[in-house]
């Protein structure tokens, strides 16, 4: 028992999909528990935070953290886990690149709270949650929101990145043995190939005269989705998933984040799209006509940065326009 590795799992701002994906590896989980003992996993066990505080520094060998940093509690807890763990793995896209919740960075906290609690919904309008509540049983405290959504490496040092929403079984079958044997570099689990590189669909070299919302276009199987005029994030997305979405006719939404070595996925996508968009005979068009194709790209910020806004260069909404 004592020669087994001690591993832990923790979730921050996450949907829970990453926790479940751990079990997607089917019977390989037996190989994992043969080598490792899970000592901390709030989703599946019932540990208390005091239990972690009581551990010695570096007592856990590997801690897998999923979810982005959204509240003071996340912030405090990952700092504690960093102290108690020899190796921290950013598991899933939220902790590696910011994730879907990162789109909250397009608004400030007041706007988000206003939208969440003061627009028509099933809740009672205008009732806002308080940080502190005095009740007969004592003082209840809710963790506050951080200024913006952060990836894990903005708060603590990360040893290995494993993006994916969630990481797929084929990624985990490679990742778990490598992690447990300790032979894996920081960025080794991020592919250098894009989704387009691994995509089975046929791409023709041609200009795309405009983009359509996916519901307005009947897609042909076997043909490149971007070629058919529907936004696909394949060119700017890391392809360790082996492209399951385009294979079944759904455009890539960019969940793995940028390929290894690239920082800004959205800017890369703007670059790729700027090169493939365009109509025939644009030499004879004026600038307004050429702009039409750019206008057909709906919500570029939200689409290109769907999973990676917190790790882009600009990270969150600035106040340059208000002043």
């Amino acid at each position: 028992m004592s020669d087994k590795l001690k591993i832990g799992f923790y979730w921050c701002a996450a949907c829970g999909g990453c926790e479940i994906s751990v079990l997607d590896i089917d019977d390989m989980i037996l190989d994992v528990v043969e080598k490792a003992e899970i000592v901390f996993w709030p989703c599946a066990m019932d540990p208390k935070y005091e239990d972690v505080e009581k551990m010695d520094d570096g007592e856990m060998d590997i801690v897998f953290v999923n979810g982005s940093i959204r509240s003071d509690e996340n912030h405090e807890m990952v700092k504690l886990l960093r102290q108690k763990a020899k190796k921290v793995v950013a598991y899933g896209s939220c902790s590696s690149i910011g994730g879907l919740f990162g789109l909250g960075n397009l608004y400030d906290n007041d706007e988000l709270m206003e939208y969440g609690y003061n627009t028509p919904s099933t809740d009672k309008d205008g009732v806002m949650p308080l940080d502190d509540n005095m009740v007969p049983e004592g003082d209840l405290h809710l963790p506050g929101l951080t200024h913006h959504v952060r990836p894990l490496d903005e708060v603590i040092d990360v040893d290995v990145y494993l993006p994916g929403c969630p990481p797929l079984p084929n990624q985990l079958e490679e990742a778990f043995p490598a992690l447990l044997s300790g032979e894996v570099g920081k960025y080794d689990l991020i592919s250098q190939k894009s989704v387009c590189d691994v995509c089975p669909l046929e791409r023709e070299e041609k200009k795309i005269p405009r983009l359509y919302p996916i519901q307005e276009k009947k897609l042909e199987a076997e043909e490149c989705i971007l070629d058919q005029g529907v936004l696909c994030m394949g060119p700017a997305t890391s392809g360790m998933c082996d492209g399951p979405c385009p294979e079944v006719g759904h455009p890539c939404i960019g969940c793995n984040g940028p390929v290894r070595g690239v920082k800004d996925q959205g800017a890369r996508m703007a670059s790729a799209l700027g090169s493939v968009l365009g109509a025939e005979g644009e030499e004879r068009m004026d600038e307004d006509e050429i702009s039409e194709v750019v206008k057909s790209v709906r919500d570029p910020t939200g689409s290109f940065y769907r999973f990676s806004l917190p790790t882009s260069y600009l990270r969150y909404k600035r106040r340059d326009l208000h002043e």
């Binding site: 600038e287 050429i290 194709v293 750019v294 790209v297 570029p300 939200g302 600009l314 340059d320 326009l321």
Partner: peptide, 27 residues
């Protein structure tokens, strides 16, 4: 041949992205 057309489209996209991120696209 058509490099500047590509630039034109990229700048169009980036201006929109800057605006969404709260940066004045006039910059």
């Amino acid at each position: 041949i058509d490099g500047n057309y590509k630039t034109f489209r990229k700048i169009g996209l980036i201006s929109k992205m800057l605006e969404d991120l709260g940066i004045n696209p006039k910059r």
